[in-house]
Computed example of a mutant assay.
Amino acid sequence: MVTPNLSAPIVLQAAQAVAGDQHYPAGALYVVATPIGNLGDITLRALQVLSLVDAVACEDTRHTAPLLRAYGLDRPLLSVHEHNEAEAAADIVRRLRQGERIAYVSDAGTPGVSDPGARLCLAVQRAGLRCMPLPGASSITALLSVAGLATAASEGPAFEFTGFLPPKGANRQAALRRLAQQAHACVLLEAPHRIVSLAQDLAALGQRVVTLGRELTKQFEEIATLPCADLPVWLASREHRCRGEFALVLHPVIPAASSRSGGLDGESLRVLALLLQELPVKSAARLGAEITGAPRNALYAAALDLKKA
């Protein structure tokens, strides 16, 4: 993040004017969302809370200290990350019982989702103390807001948050199989060193649509919506596209009645896509029919569509 050219006292005065009248009870943990890239995405209420707490617990003090300074804040920092969260939680509970206000922030976005914070909140709740959320920036909701999902409530959940898949082995393969079987939208997160591998895995889903967000809210943000089959080529088309942090929305399966698939379900299409990686269209359709029991003609038509993609 780049330190903005702004007058910090004015920002904090605005935070006080807008959010200062709210009651902020003592002995509570404040779970504060911070920007995912653009410093302008901090909320005024977050600034107000960060200015009045007794200490800020954070995933990485080296990251949080300059973040606070960018807004003209200087608070004591407590290191709470995935490797010490259980031990650090006990100390925070002790401080809360003494009447302190403690804020918790992760390196970026909303804590406790894919970042540390969940075990800390659980420990605080089990101690009978309050956890108060301060919503804000999130790559998940940011990408969903522009992905164009329009799933009717009667068709099941609009989306499922999947997050990071297991990096390798049987657990990853099981997660990919489950992902392919979900008819509704799924939200994924991925790191730059694994995005190519994820793109290759998702390519097996053929014409199923995916929206990818790279470096969301930052200067070189990119958002693209395309078939899963095209994702590896899109990433490889420009060298910089494998850099940065990624969020992906795997769109719902298109109802089979509106396509050439002739009533095929998601599992039949998934099996067909996998067979097409090794077999010609005719052989994949024949074997797919034997495995799934789906109509051979419908599988053949769908295989032609996948090959064309």
Rank of each mutant, 00 (worst) to 15 (best):
Met1Ile: 06
Met1Leu: 06
Val2Gly: 07
Pro4His: 06
Ala8Phe: 08
Val11Pro: 02
Gln13Tyr: 02
Gln13Trp: 12
Ala14Gly: 14
Ala15Asn: 07
Gln16Asn: 05
Gln16Phe: 05
Val18Arg: 14
Ala19Val: 10
Gly20Asp: 14
Asp21Met: 08
Pro25Gly: 01
Ala26Ile: 10
Gly27Leu: 06
Tyr30Ala: 11
Val31His: 05
Val31Ala: 14
Pro35Arg: 03
Leu39Thr: 11
Arg45Trp: 02
Leu52Thr: 15
Val56Leu: 14
His63Ala: 12
His63Cys: 01
Ala65Glu: 03
Pro66Cys: 07
Asp74Ile: 03
Asp74Ser: 15
Arg75Pro: 04
Leu78Thr: 00
Val80Leu: 11
Val80Thr: 12
His81Ala: 05
Asn84Leu: 00
Ala86Val: 15
Glu87Ser: 08
Ala90Lys: 15
Val93Gly: 06
Val93Glu: 07
Val93Thr: 04
Arg95Tyr: 05
Leu96Lys: 05
Arg97Gly: 15
Glu100Leu: 15
Ala103Lys: 10
Ala103Ser: 14
Tyr104Met: 09
Val105Ser: 03
Val105Gly: 03
Gly109Pro: 09
Val113Gln: 07
Asp115Thr: 12
Pro116Gly: 11
Gly117Leu: 10
Cys121Trp: 11
Cys121Arg: 02
Val124Trp: 01
Gln125Cys: 12
Arg126Pro: 00
Ala127Trp: 12
Ala127Cys: 04
Gly128Lys: 07
Arg130Thr: 13
Pro133Ser: 15
Leu134Gly: 09
Ala137Gly: 14
Ser138Ala: 03
Ser139Glu: 08
Ala142Pro: 06
Leu143Cys: 11
Leu144Gln: 02
Thr151Asn: 04
Phe159Trp: 08
Gly163Thr: 06
Phe164Cys: 02
Leu165Cys: 10
Pro167Ile: 02
Pro167Thr: 09
Ala170Asn: 09
Arg172Met: 03
Arg172Asn: 04
Gln173Ile: 07
Arg178Phe: 02
Leu179Thr: 13
Ala183Pro: 04
Val187Phe: 09
Val187Arg: 14
Leu188Asp: 09
Ala191Val: 04
Ala191Tyr: 05
Pro192Phe: 13
Arg194Ser: 12
Arg194Ala: 09
Ile195Ser: 01
Leu202Trp: 08
Ala203Thr: 02
Gln207Tyr: 05
Arg208Ile: 08
Arg208Thr: 08
Glu215Ile: 10
Leu216Pro: 10
Leu216Gly: 04
Thr217Met: 11
Gln219Cys: 12
Glu222Ser: 12
Thr225Asn: 02
Thr225Gly: 00
Pro227Arg: 03
Asp230Leu: 06
Pro232Ser: 13
Trp234Asp: 09
Arg243Pro: 03
Gly244His: 08
Gly244Pro: 00
Phe246Ile: 07
Leu248Trp: 00
His251Pro: 03
His251Trp: 09
His251Cys: 04
Pro252Leu: 03
Ser258Asn: 01
Arg260Trp: 00
Gly263Trp: 12
Gly263Cys: 09
Leu264Cys: 02
Leu264Tyr: 04
Leu264Thr: 08
Gly266Met: 11
Leu272Glu: 04
Glu278His: 15
Leu279Thr: 07
Val281Phe: 08
Ser283Trp: 02
Arg286Ser: 07
Gly288His: 10
Gly288Cys: 08
Ala289Phe: 03
Glu290Thr: 12
Glu290Pro: 03
Glu290Leu: 11
Ile291Met: 02
Arg296Trp: 00
Leu299Asp: 12
Ala301Val: 01
Ala301Pro: 06
Asp305Pro: 00
Asp305Gln: 15
Leu306Ile: 12
Leu306Ser: 03
Ala309Tyr: 04
